[in-house]
Design a binder for these strands. Structure first.
Length: 545
RNA sequence: GCGCCUGUAGCUCAAUUGGAUAGAGCACUUGCCUACGGAGCAAGUUGUUGCAGGUUCGAUUCCUGCCAGGCGCACCA
């Protein structure tokens, strides 16, 4: 269903034309949910913004706008749903919607199911979202786990909102780190065979290296290329971990194949033609300062090998050439210094830097019973995705990783995530779903009665639950605009709360058949929205717990 | 030294892109099960939004300067 906000925004814009301002003078019209329900269902501050420009009192401006809205809404199909439009406070325009409007929305959900909740903010635009992209030199860490949860959920939300989304993992399958991995395994194998070795500090220290070496020894494998073997072995582990976490990628993009394709040279050819490359001190530099970077960057070292930036420039050029209009990258906080130079390279190819958004996913600190769990990647001791999955399960892990704004640091207490009490928000939301399912089971055949009695929903808790259902599409919009799915977790907790409150005060199944039908319809609507939201998070919606 | 992120109730975090009286959960206290799942609900207590200025009708939000914490500043990847 098309959100009513869109129609009202259009009506407001129509009304603004009569004020005699130029287009560029008009501020953008934004409709918000008022903080307090007594200010209606939707609100805009447009009159306050305009008052300054046209030098009238905000209330006066608001009155003019309202009369314009009213006349343009006449004969509109939505007019009957608008109970009132009022000026309140300093000059806010508040819209009061009829309860029938929310009932219509519920009916739609009940007849069409979850597709009724879809919106088309994306209008079919093609998005490539690249995330995790961890080097295949070790298991996935907690940092990767959060990136996986955020990236996958954001993809789900974008897909649901009308974007065409592909998920990609950039595979660093050659270079220094891979070479070191090979040498590390080879050395551990020698150690297993009884040789005296000295293990260098910059080699991979974790026990998993010895585990890989042991596999080679036990199976008597003839290894020609230890790097290749190690990489493939670890990649298998990574893929399995991601699969167990419910994350699937459409593409695994190999850095080696990128280099072998000659795309790096081609990209450089284009940059050179445009005058963005130059030689200095025996190296080739990219003039990233032209596009706002702090300093120019080396792309070909004086020993003629590429820096890390070189394939990345070609890689992102290739993303555009593959037809994607919007690129989203999820990176760890240690890469934020890298943003400007990569955006500069996109700009150099004539792309709008805004079409590449780089989301920095802040780290999560793992706690166990209130105490931080110490991590040290240097000694190969870090909490892995696997350990978190084994300890708390995929549902709790995903919900917890998504519970905070992506740009904020996150505290993740394993003990709380394991608890089956109200301390644990995952259970609170899932419990609401299970409880509804239980009522529907008890209702049996009665739940299937064709419902035309929704009009009986009049209690305050019923209406506020109805309104909460309707806010779902708005929350999706917030997630799309902020490119951050975390608001969805907040919303689902609020929705569950509204349901529990309703449940506690009003009995669904009663002797009153009509009222029973109406309430079954209401909770069934809540069930559909809850399960849709949980599905977008990648969390299950249990019917029993 | 430079750049990015963060600083809100005892703790963990919100605050709808500058809005209306800054809100939730946890913890603590007290109530509510002969009825659809008590993994729930209700009530109570909690604030100099790190500090100091500025911008305006209005600032937790934007700007400047400090303070504190985290991360990054390679011809590494």
């Amino acid at each position: 269903m098309e959100p009513i906000q869109d129609h009202l925004t259009a009506a407001i814009n129509q009304s603004l034309k009569k004020l005699g301002l130029k287009k560029e003078e008009l501020p953008e019209v934004i409709l918000d949910f008022p903080t307090d329900p007594r200010f209606g269902e939707l609100s805009t501050n447009i009159a306050l913004k305009l008052a300054k420009i046209i030098k009238k009192s905000p209330v006066e401006v608001a009155k003019e706008i309202i009369s314009g809205i009213k006349s343009s809404l006449k004969k509109h199909k939505l007019d009957k749903f608008i109970e009132d439009i009022r000026v309140e406070g300093a000059g806010f325009i508040n819209f009061y919607l009829h309860n029938d409007f929310f009932l219509e929305y519920l009916k739609l959900i009940l007849t069409k199911g979850y597709p009724a909740l879809k919106v088309n903010y994306g209008k079919g635009r093609k998005v490539l979202i690249e995330f995790v992209s961890a080097n295949p030199t070790g298991a996935l860490s907690v940092a990767h786990a959060r990136q996986a949860a955020v990236g996958d959920c954001l993809s789900n939300v974008l897909e649901f909102s009308g974007f065409k989304v592909k998920r990609e993992y950039y595979l660093n399958d050659e270079g220094n780190q891979i070479n070191i991995l090979g040498r590390s395994i080879e050395l551990r194998l020698k150690e297993l065979n009884g040789e005296n070795i000295e293990f260098p500090e910059d080699y991979y220290q974790g026990d998993y290296i010895t585990d890989i070496a042991r596999i080679i020894k036990d199976k008597h494998l003839e290894i020609k290329d230890f790097s290749e073997f190690g990489k493939d072995h670890i990649l298998g582990i990574i893929k399995q971990e991601l699969a167990d976490f419910g994350v699937k990628f459409d593409y695994w993009y190999s850095q080696r194949s990128l280099r072998e394709s000659g795309k790096i040279e081609k990209a450089f050819l284009v940059l050179r033609e445009k005058g963005y490359l130059y030689e200095q001190d025996g190296a080739v530099w990219f003039k990233s300062t032209v596009f706002g970077d702090d300093k120019d960057r080396v792309v070909v070292k004086s020993d003629r090998s590429f820096t890390y930036l070189a394939p990345d420039i070609a890689y992102h050029r290739d993303k555009y050439r593959r037809g994607f209009e919007l690129l989203i990258n999820l990176w760890g906080p240690d890469h934020h210094g890298y943003i400007n130079r990569l955006k500069a390279s996109c700009a150099a190819f004539g792309k709008d830097p805004a079409s590449l958004s780089i989301i920095i996913v802040q780290l999560a600190t793992i706690f166990r019973g209130g105490k931080p769990v110490q991590m040290s990647t240097r000694r190969g001791e870090f909490i892995t995705l696997r350990e978190v999955l084994d300890e708390v399960g995929s549902d709790a892990a995903r919900f917890f990783f998504l519970m905070r704004r992506t740009s904020s640091h996150l505290d993740f207490d394993l003990e709380i995530a394991k608890k089956q009490t109200s301390e644990n928000p995952v259970y609170y939301v899932q419990y609401a779903h299970a409880r509804i399912c239980s009522i529907l089971r008890s209702a049996g055949k009665r739940a299937k009665i064709k419902s035309s009695s929704l009009l009986l929903l009049k209690e305050a808790e019923e209406i506020s639950l109805l309104k909460k259902l309707w806010q779902f599409s708005y929350i999706l919009n917030v997630c799309v605009l902020t490119q951050d799915p975390f608001m969805l977790t907040v919303y689902l907790q609020e929705l569950a709360e509204h349901f529990h409150k309703f449940y506690d005060l009003h009995r669904v199944l009663s002797d009153d058949d009509a009222l029973t039908e109406a309430r079954l319809g209401l909770i069934n609507g809540a069930r559909i929205v809850l399960s849709t939201g949980l599905k977008l998070l990648g969390v299950s919606s249990p019917e029993k717990m």
